[in-house]
Design a protein around this nucleic acid. Sequence first.
DNA 1: ATAAATATGATACAGGTGTATCAAATAAAT
DNA 2: ATTTATTTGATACACCTGTATCATATTTAT
Lengths: 201, 201
Amino acid sequence: MPKLIDHESKKLDIAHAAWKILLKEGMEGASVRNIAKEAGITLGALRYYFTTQEELLAYTEDLVHANLAERTTELFMADLPPQEKVLKLLAGLLPENGEGDSAPEARLIFKLHSKYSGKAYDRGRDSVYQAVKSVMSNLVMLNLLKKDTDLSLETDRLYGLMDGLALNSMLQGAEGNPEKTRGILETHLKAISKEPSGGQY
Amino acid sequence: MPKLIDHESKKLDIAHAAWKILLKEGMEGASVRNIAKEAGITLGALRYYFTTQEELLAYTEDLVHANLAERTTELFMADLPPQEKVLKLLAGLLPENGEGDSAPEARLIFKLHSKYSGKAYDRGRDSVYQAVKSVMSNLVMLNLLKKDTDLSLETDRLYGLMDGLALNSMLQGAEGNPEKTRGILETHLKAISKEPSGGQY
DNA sequence: ATAAATATGATACAGGTGTATCAAATAAAT
DNA sequence: ATTTATTTGATACACCTGTATCATATTTAT
């Protein structure tokens, strides 16, 4: 038998290169040639792993969502007061918090791209939507929400707020301070929670 | 003297064609050739009015924002209870409400495009941000907001919510019901307002 | 050493892009 | 009828795009 390179890990390398390009130049810069160059391989080699650009991008999007879902899971198991945990979790899903990879920004780029690229956006596959749903049902379980809360509506409201904050964080680069974004999230969480019978958040 | 076509109104025609294209095919479809075809003129004629694609798009963006600002102004002067007026105003700035031109969607497309097209997004020129600011200071004037409200923070929160709702409305096409979006807005407005001493919204 | 997987790099196709130029036709004003 | 603004339509340039092919090399296992 011959070379036997780990096919899957090589695909991951390429997807990470695509990811990097997306953050630097957006979807418009994500040409197969640019990605190949970033990955340090040739067009032919890239084609060996991904037949189609669409296939590569879909793979990369899955990778990004897997990354975000992992963050969410980790934080869910952390040993923290519920309110603080929830706040940290949501804040971690917004851009400009971790500068390393910035999965949140990549996710947003994919989401924005979805409009004129075929089918409708499936929020069921959106790691942020899943996280928001988890957060909300968690708050329900712990009986932390106000009485007479419309869970579905409040889920959509928080989800909308998350997307809006993500978008505006992404668009204003360095100027947009993460502290203010965090403050907004905190305010929102307080607003949908029961009256404080002690310190919160 | 010769032909003397109204230069400005012709530019408006072209910008409206660009607008239409943007809604149909997004920014990727907004090539000068496509726009010229939509406007029913030739490439050369288009070039007679706009030297550059960037110039044409900037002109179109201004047109869209002017349209939105006009809606806002009209509704501000309407004879309605403040809460209802505010709700109508904000809902009118989200996609899928008026199917005619859908300035809100066009605005969002421009906003999304701004990231990898040069400079940072200037929210000061965003008609929606201006509307949100107006709404908030209006609520302050009428003393309708909760005590100890952080005006700047609540403005950004509502602005974020508006963008998130707009984005999600745009992305789910027909499926996303405007009624739910309106319900979310209503809930949010109630949440930042004083306790009802009567009917609200 | 041999065989198979992997990668190169070059070439090609067909199509799109923004910008540019320009002689010729068309239209409306004087 | 003549002047001048407007528009046509065609051509061109230089560049980018995704996809495709393929002989040649490189690597790694047996």
